[in-house]
Design a protein around this nucleic acid. Structure first.
Length: 376
DNA sequence: TGTATTTGACCGAG
DNA sequence: CTCGGTCAAATACA
């Protein structure tokens, strides 16, 4: 017998594209004829930073209204830590590439924004087109772009091949995000709370040393949209009322122009609807990510760094089906980096420490490395 | 009949 | 070789 599927199958799919995207465009900038930096790598880092900053902003705004949602706050904080941690780690790699005291070269000699950043705008549309193609034709690149800070070199080489050869990347914590969620107080307490996605269980396993079995779920739309998202759910040994949910892979189905459905209100315990940007917050870090991302179209425009998102197309309805592989574009939005270039200039020209760079962007927040580790 | 879950078998990373 | 992760046939349900 299986448990009430209704507890798992509410669909909630509305959000703008992820701020990170994979690219098989690996422009490089020569540096001393030896050291190179990939434009796409820096794009991802910058996107991470902006996204993290947005998360913080949203958290601040929501803070007065959700003081009684500690788990939500934890998830938000974890997500922020993870995003900045990833950005920081990647920046470290870049800094190592260039040496600790050497900023990247100014390509135009003008000493302003690095070329890789400027090119972001120029290549933005291309990147999204490519992402859509990855969604449609294969998963290698999409999977490789895990926000969790996967190996940059691995990504760079993986996407260069069209073959389906399995990468030797370890299934590591790098692409995992773990959160803990209280079991529902009412109803079926054997399943974790709704997290805004539709999941299909494909396995269950007894785990050595654990009292409770681990359930394996994948995105319901895995086949339809090649969505690689998966999650594992397991009760804590020492607290059967708490689920540990580990997410792996990002949802690509929801970025697709054929995204499955309209949002449904997540059946969470009372959260002041009026306090939240546009939609009820989900409980998982990933869904929170999306929930927060949704707000970008409302609040980011015209912010202090001049980031603007044009033409966000957040809602996808069934009429879009079939457009994925055709001329119908992937979710379109343009990131106008105007004004951001100064910020990034500062990042790379203000000193050797990537810590400094991070503080410039987000001075209040203490750096926390490797945010996906949440073992206690 | 179509879709989702269960569960033992299988695969492969470590 | 071990064990976590996945597959897929059997089963349950709407």
């Amino acid at each position: 017998m299986y448990q009430n599927p209704n507890l798992y199958t509410t669909t909630f799919v509305v959000y703008p594209p992820r701020f990170s995207y994979s690219s098989n465009q690996h422009h490089t900038l020569e540096h001393n004829s030896k050291k190179r930096i990939r434009i796409s790598d820096m794009e991802e880092i910058v996107n991470l930073i902006f996204h993290g900053r947005k998360l913080v902003k949203d958290l601040e705004e929501a803070l007065p209204n959700i003081p009684n949602q500690p788990y939500l706050l934890i998830n938000l904080c974890d997500e922020i830590s993870r995003v900045f941690g990833n950005a920081r780690d990647r920046l470290s790699l870049v800094v190592q590439d260039y040496g600790h005291h050497e900023p990247p070269p100014a390509m135009d000699g003008g000493g302003s924004a690095p070329e890789w950043l400027r090119s972001s705008h120029a290549t933005d549309m291309v990147l999204h087109e490519q992402l859509a193609q990855h969604q449609h034709h294969g998963l290698e690149a999409v999977v490789g772009q895990e926000l969790g800070g996967g190996d940059v070199e691995a990504l760079a080489t993986d996407v260069g091949h069209s073959s389906l050869q399995r990468t030797r990347r370890r299934k590591h914590e790098a692409d995992r995000r773990t959160i803990r969620i209280p079991a529902p107080r009412m109803g079926n307490t054997e399943v974790p709370p709704e997290d805004g996605y539709t999941w299909r269980k494909y396995g269950q396993k007894e785990i050595l040393g654990s009292r409770f079995p681990r359930g394996y779920y994948r995105c319901t739309h895995q086949k339809l949209y090649n969505c690689p998202a998966k999650k594992q759910v397991q009760k804590l040994d020492n607290d059967p009322n708490t689920f540990e949910v580990t997410y792996r892979g990002d949802h690509t189905c929801t970025m697709s122009s054929t995204a499955p459905s309209m949002p449904a209100p997540p059946p969470l315990e009372a959260i002041p609807i009026h306090s939240l940007p546009s939609h009820l917050p989900p409980t998982s870090s990933q869904s929170i990510h999306q929930w927060l991302s949704m707000d970008i179209k409302h609040s980011v425009v015209g912010d202090q760094y001049g980031i603007t998102h044009h033409g966000l197309q957040t809602y996808r309805n069934q009429s879009d089906i079939g457009g994925q592989a055709s001329s119908s574009s992937p979710t379109r939005y343009n990131l106008d980096y105007t004004g951001v270039t100064d910020l990034v200039d500062t990042m790379f020209n203000s000193g050797s420490s990537s810590n400094n760079s991070m503080e410039l962007i987000f001075p209040q927040k203490e750096e926390k490395k490797d945010g996906e580790e949440k073992t206690d």
